[in-house]
Design a protein around this nucleic acid. Structure first.
Lengths: 343, 343
DNA sequence: CCGATTATTCAAAGCGCTTTGGAAATGATT
DNA sequence: AATCATTTCCAAAGCGCTTTGAATAATCGG
């Protein structure tokens, strides 16, 4: 059923029905009620395609996912981010358009989606240190919101980030306070902006205590479980093994724990582990007391907030770009303890 | 730039330009080339909203995600499924529309998306044993494809499923062959169709060897890591603890491993674990040799296949519904070994 | 060189909605 | 009762594309 048929059935003009349904004031409440009730009774829903052509808005937000980056960003964190953002979209009448593309086609995908008018705005995921997408989207003149930051992009842009550096300073300080001096860093891929900031936090915390970071105790890769295992396993076999690890996510931390136990050592006693915890819903950091001591920030809440802000921006572009920086909280679990006495 | 402006710039009619761009034969190759080159040069992309209104197709596939089911289905498996499906969509000119809704609104969401004409078809995720969505979508007359099965729905519908029962028969048989007789089942939520089939597989394998399943060794819940930990932890403290576990996913299996090690036992020696492995990209079951012995089937490949089949169905509805059943493969890792000798 | 084909191109009519500019009906004010 | 302001409703013009039906240009056999 379309608007013409529906309004004929009601004996009203298409204009009146449209206005009644869209909450315009030029229609009496009695008429509005009659129209709304009839719409429900007949299951009438305005055709979205026609509606968006007429209004010029698609009511869709674009998320472009480069297929190979999935390890680093998409999978672990992504599902929770999406859940948060999607909730907000739903409440505001928006839908989420997701486009999975090969890495080479990423920039093209943003451009096409924007030019085709398929979306009213974008969420930009997983920015690198010098992300070309920001300049592109600014050139295209379409609203967008970055989850994270891109250090080398000097023009302002809307974004929300966790204070990754501070979080890693705190995590490293926590271990230093416990007397650890050989601390391994199991980081994410260095091309990701967040990974660089985390490393800076780790390095500057060490230097603040007069400890020169040891390159052989720092590594970076896709944040999988086996990566955490292998990196920790190798480091633990060094002549001067670390007594503690800082990990970029709970996923490699699980691998680190496995490596520790495989080596016959005890987590939180012989070797301490602290990680960044995105509060992933299906990998909760314990129920009740945390498994890992961690610096935590909910990626799902970040998804919600990014969505809210992007929708605001679409409705009314802000005079100056929005920038939010969230502090991670420190939660203490059983994976950390005093550095073992030197023999 | 719109079609009118673009075609004026070329000195051609809108018809000719449209046909040139859409590959219709009524236009000379010379003209087509000229139009295509100009489109690239000027960055012209036909407005998708207008296009879909004119053609009556949205070129979007809907995925409805009930927000609270995320633990069970969305998170772990979902990201990989989406990556597979999204790849296929991209290749075929489709986009993915994702709608995150509260559980109560799930059915309504399908109906609205269909009635509004926002999507040309749906992928149905995580069917329960008697899933109402199948009847609804059939009533709405919109193409859809189910990932999984719904046992109690007797009418045929398009679907692809893993042979969950067989996979769990094989997993349980594998443990029985190793001499285990007390085997715990750490299953997913029972309302999910796959969880029931898996339990049936487990139970029938035991009965085939004359072992009556012990209710106290069977549990079902959302498949998180802490759930696996708690369930295994509790079972291991029984007077007659299990010597092996069958787990529904690698995520609770990680928790089971933690519980085993916490109890001072050795995985693959004192206690064996076998799990179902969806081949999740960021939780790979080891690199090289598998961490867990498992029955494996790639959920990403399933996503690809479901997308391909749905697109075929949209293009041309099949005379009889499509049904594919995939067998999981058994991969042997280090998490299983002979049952310890009784004392 | 002409009428019949065939290859190109075009004008105009939708697709189903929103929204502008008015008209009709109602109520308030003199 | 006449005037004016409000309220309520409507006809018609887009939104930017595809596609039908028709016109024109090019090609060909005789």
């Amino acid at each position: 059923m379309n608007l013409r048929e529906f309004s004929e059935k009601l004996g009203l003009s298409q204009t009146t029905v449209s206005r009644a349904l869209n909450g315009y004031p030029e229609v009496s409440e009695a008429t509005r009620k009659r129209v709304q009730d009839a719409a429900i009774a007949h299951g009438y829903h305005p055709n979205q395609r026609a509606k968006s052509l007429a209004t010029g808005r698609s009511m869709q937000i674009g998320h472009v996912i480069p297929v190979s980056i999935q390890h680093e960003m998409m999978n672990v964190v992504f599902a929770d981010f999406i859940a948060g953002a999607g909730e907000v979209y739903g409440r505001n009448g928006y839908d989420m358009l997701m486009s999975v593309v090969s890495d080479d086609d990423e920039v093209k995908a943003y451009e096409e989606l924007a030019r085709k008018g398929s979306v009213d705005g974008f969420i930009v995921h997983g920015p690198t240190d010098d992300d070309p997408r920001i300049a592109l989207l600014q050139k295209l003149g379409i609203p967008f919101f970055v989850h994270g930051r891109s250090t080398d992009v000097r023009v302002p842009y809307n974004h929300l980030d966790v204070n990754n550096k501070r979080a890693f300073v705190r995590a490293t300080d926590f271990l230093l306070d416990l007397g650890h001096t050989r601390i391994g860093l199991i980081n994410g891929l260095e091309r990701m902006d967040f990974a660089q900031r985390r490393r800076h936090g780790y390095v500057s915390a060490l230097r603040a205590r007069g400890i020169e970071p040891d390159q052989s105790l720092m590594c970076s890769d896709e944040m999988t479980e086996p990566y955490g295992y292998k990196a920790a396993h190798d480091m633990l076999r060094k002549t001067r093994p670390p007594t503690a690890f800082v990990a970029s996510s709970i996923v490699p931390a699980l691998g680190i724990r496995r490596a520790i136990e495989d080596s016959g050592l005890k987590l939180g006693k012989d070797v301490s582990v602290i990680c960044f915890d995105d509060a992933i819903s299906y990998l909760p950091n314990g129920s009740g007391e945390p498994i890992f001591t961690a610096t935590r920030s909910s990626v799902r809440d970040a998804g919600k907030r990014c969505a809210e802000l992007l929708i605001d921006i679409i409705k009314e572009p802000p005079a100056t770009p929005i920038a939010e920086l969230w502090e991670a909280e420190l939660v203490v679990g059983n994976s950390t303890g005093p550095a073992p006495a030197k023999d």
